[in-house]
């Protein structure tokens, strides 16, 4: 079997992998931001909720998170009379991964926000900015820059975790590889998985390169 045929077959699963990655990261960030905001409201009940959420996710294998989403969500929705058994599988994949990664992103955002120098906020107020602009112009950009290395690691972790959606029968790059290796009755299996690994590596190297470029652009901003 030709290497090029393997690559083409595996790349057929790339769109599924990428849409899963982008959508999950988007919703995970949304969850992370809103949880961080709740946490920082200093409301004891809300921050306890955020703590429990983080504690549960920390101890949950991503695979299990996906399975619970796939098998559990239909049951939960059935309780309120909504049938979601026919919804696209990618929906359950996105929910499982976003809930998992949202907790880690929440932690990254919150710790970054708390480590912004308090003097920066005071300086913003002292030149007459209102609280909203002080947040948008000064606190938020600095929070984001501080959180960047963690965000990069989490995004790379998410790339790798997308391979787990095979458990719900989604056809991503990884599933294409297992299908191909089964079709060939055990020949070239090693080659298939090495090529698959190289493809994932390439995606990760690309992400690392993008973050490096971004970081270089802001190299003089020392926070």
């Amino acid at each position: 079997m030709k290497v090029s045929k393997v690559i083409v077959t595996l790349l057929n699963g790339l769109p599924e992998t990428l849409s899963l990655l982008v959508a999950s990261f988007f919703f995970a960030s949304l969850i992370g931001l809103s949880m961080a905001w709740l946490y920082l409201r200093k409301n004891p009940i809300l921050s306890d909720l955020a703590k429990i959420y983080l504690g549960i996710v920390r101890g949950t294998p991503p695979l299990l998170m996906l399975l619970l989403s796939y098998f559990g969500l239909p049951k939960l929705f059935a309780l309120v009379g909504i049938n979601i058994n026919d919804w696209a599988k990618i929906f359950f994949g996105i929910v499982g991964l976003s809930v998992g990664w949202g907790a880690y992103l929440e932690e990254a955002f919150r710790s970054a926000y708390l480590s912004v120098d308090k003097g920066q906020y005071e300086a913003a107020l002292s030149v007459g900015m209102d609280v909203k602009h002080a947040f948008l112009q000064i606190l938020m950009p600095q929070t984001f820059l501080i959180a960047l290395p963690n965000i990069e690691n989490l995004l790379i972790g998410l790339v790798k975790a997308t391979s787990l959606v095979y458990v719900m029968g989604m056809v991503d790059m990884y599933s294409k590889a297992t299908d191909l290796s089964n079709q060939n009755q055990g020949v070239y299996q090693l080659e298939i998985f090495i090529i698959l690994a190289l493809l994932y590596w390439l995606i990760v190297l690309l992400i690392e390169w993008l973050f490096r470029m971004f970081h270089r652009y802001y190299r003089y901003v020392e926070i």
């Binding site: 790798k160 990884y174 090693l190 998985f193 690994a197 994932y200 990760v204």
Partner: peptide, 22 residues
């Protein structure tokens, strides 16, 4: 190290699974 950190563990497992005997 970069390769291992850039690939899913399940893929690594299969590489070892098929590669170690060879």
């Amino acid at each position: 190290v970069s390769f291992i950190r850039g690939t899913p563990i399940i893929v690594q497992m299969y590489v070892v699974y098929y590669g170690l005997p060879q």
